[in-house]
Design a binder for these strands. Structure first.
Lengths: 226, 226
DNA sequence: ACTCGCGGTCGACCACCTTCGGCACCGGCT
DNA sequence: AGCCGGTGCCGAAGGTGGTCGACCGCGAGT
């Protein structure tokens, strides 16, 4: 049989080139031709590996999801319960330069979903995974006595995730709420009513009333400004 | 002087045609040519009224914002405080067929914002307006004794709005959380911890633990069912 | 060495947004 | 009435981006 390339790694290269372009030149410059040029191949070659450009977008989305999961794994590390939940959210929220570019891609992706129903599946899948993980952490937090026994875990998990989605949008729009400090305040504000005193101590979450610039250190790095 | 058309109403016609097309044929079919054809004019004529297609999008966004505000005004009517806040949120959330199409347009709009910084201004403006109104309603609700005195109004308002934004996305993606019942559950879940017994009675919000299928039927009109 | 087929190039096609030169028309002016 | 000037509008052309298909070349298997 003839020449054989590793199709999977080639696809990965293409996706990487796309994300590189987005980060460097912005979403609008990341066209199929630009991606091909970035890789030093002709644009037609792309279609040996992807059916169309939306499939590239879809793959980029998956790649971002995987990256985020990797970051989550690192951030959560050996933590569990409330700390794990907070660390996890810290990796999903668009707090850093890395996640900034990702937010651009992701929000643009969402915009394309309406007329590509198949694309929606991934977001659902991603959310289902995160939801399950987050729920497990919250459940553990309740078992730890960090969250009150009456805490509606299910609802809390969904709320936090939808909040994260909303924050992606806010971040793209450069709204005031998208400031890292504020992002954390919203998260802690959702958790606060359910925290036990032990939870407040353990999670290092600011008390309900006073929301300082107290971001969990392991997560966002520097939020110290605000 | 020569023939004069009402430029403003012409612009409105174009925007209306665009939104009609989106509702009928989907976002991807709503091209500049299609809009022109819908109006029975040539595509070139559009650019006498808009600098480019993004400006049409922008105008459509503004139109949707205005429509939503009109609906909010109707829904809020003579209500105030907690009921007004809930009614307001009910008009922002993508709960009905009307808001469905709007969500498609809006989410697509957000996707285009990253490389059109000027477009972001409107979303910021819209959010600022809603934030102020919502805050006023919540403030009144606290004064009414429907929300506890320690309620972090500022934070609550932001949280609810970001939640609404997130729900738009979820709705476009047809996630499970986007079900109307669930949407309401997230909202009430955020409010619940701060409600006083009087507030629970007045707002007819389901108790924290048990979330029935209590979606206000007329979107926000009648929340009194319980 | 031959061959078959994959990976790639190149150019063409189509749809889109946008521009532009020109025509048609209308209101006022002479 | 007949001429202007300016505006509304058309439709062709330009530029760009996604996608397809005809062709080439290399390299693994025979």
């Amino acid at each position: 049989m003839p020449k054989v390339v590793d199709r999977e790694s080639r696809r990965a290269e293409i996706v990487a080139a796309y994300l590189r372009l987005v980060a460097r030149d912005g979403v609008e410059s990341a066209t199929s031709r630009a991606v091909a040029a970035e890789l030093g191949i002709s644009s037609g070659a792309l279609w040996h590996y992807f059916a169309d450009f939306d499939e590239v977008l879809s793959a980029a989305f998956r790649r971002i999801f995987a990256d985020t999961n990797r970051r989550i794994a690192t951030a959560v590390d050996h933590r569990s319960g409330l700390a794990a939940a907070v660390a996890m959210i810290g990796e999903i929220l668009p707090l850093t330069a890395v996640t900034h570019d990702e937010a651009l891609v992701v929000v643009g992706f969402w915009g394309r979903v309406p007329f590509r129903p198949d694309l929606a599946a991934f977001q659902s899948e991603a959310e289902a995974v995160w939801r399950a993980d987050l729920l497990a952490h919250l459940d553990r937090a309740r078992a730890d006595g960090h969250l009150g026994p009456a805490t509606p875990l299910d609802l809390l998990a969904d709320t936090l995730l939808v909040l994260c989605i909303g924050q992606q949008v806010e971040h793209v729009l450069r709204t005031d709420v998208a400031r890292p400090v504020r992002q954390w305040q919203l998260v802690t504000g959702c958790l606060a009513p359910w925290l036990t005193p032990a939870g407040r101590a353990a999670g290092a979450l600011p008390p309900v009333g006073g929301f300082g610039p107290a971001a969990p250190d392991a997560v966002a790095g520097d939020v110290s400004g605000g």
